[in-house]
Amino acid sequence: ALNRGDKVRIKRTESYWYGDVGTVASVEKSGILYPVIVRFDRVNYNGFSGSASGVNTNNFAENELELVQAAA
Rank of each mutant, 00 (worst) to 15 (best):
62 E>A: 10
27 V>G: 01
34 Y>D: 06
35 P>M: 12
41 D>P: 05
35 P>W: 09
46 N>H: 08
38 V>E: 01
50 G>Y: 03
51 S>D: 14
61 A>S: 11
32 I>R: 08
10 I>N: 04
53 S>R: 04
5 G>V: 02
6 D>Q: 02
65 L>G: 00
26 S>E: 14
39 R>E: 12
5 G>K: 02
33 L>E: 14
24 V>S: 02
61 A>K: 07
21 V>E: 04
5 G>C: 13
62 E>L: 09
1 A>R: 12
4 R>I: 13
59 N>I: 06
37 I>W: 13
24 V>H: 01
11 K>L: 15
58 N>E: 15
57 T>G: 04
53 S>C: 15
60 F>V: 02
42 R>V: 13
4 R>P: 14
40 F>T: 02
28 E>S: 10
72 A>V: 13
15 S>K: 02
51 S>M: 09
47 G>M: 04
35 P>C: 13
55 V>I: 12
70 A>N: 07
33 L>T: 11
53 S>T: 14
17 W>Y: 05
26 S>C: 14
64 E>C: 07
60 F>K: 00
15 S>C: 13
45 Y>T: 15
13 T>V: 13
22 G>S: 02
19 G>T: 04
71 A>S: 08
33 L>F: 09
36 V>P: 00
13 T>R: 10
16 Y>V: 04
1 A>D: 10
62 E>P: 09
44 N>Q: 14
12 R>N: 15
67 L>I: 09
17 W>K: 01
21 V>Q: 04
3 N>L: 06
24 V>R: 15
64 E>F: 03
64 E>R: 01
17 W>A: 01
19 G>C: 15
3 N>E: 13
57 T>E: 13
68 V>C: 11
39 R>S: 08
46 N>E: 15
22 G>K: 00
23 T>F: 07
10 I>H: 02
54 G>V: 04
29 K>F: 07
19 G>D: 09
57 T>C: 13
32 I>A: 13
36 V>W: 03
56 N>R: 07
59 N>G: 14
37 I>M: 13
38 V>Q: 00
64 E>I: 02
25 A>F: 08
47 G>K: 04
9 R>L: 11
1 A>K: 12
57 T>L: 07
59 N>S: 12
40 F>D: 03
50 G>I: 04
58 N>G: 15
50 G>Q: 07
7 K>G: 03
47 G>H: 10
10 I>E: 01
29 K>G: 13
32 I>E: 13
8 V>M: 00
5 G>Q: 02
47 G>V: 05
63 N>Y: 12
2 L>P: 05
50 G>E: 13
22 G>W: 08
59 N>C: 15
23 T>Q: 06
45 Y>H: 15
43 V>A: 05
71 A>H: 12
52 A>V: 10
68 V>R: 03
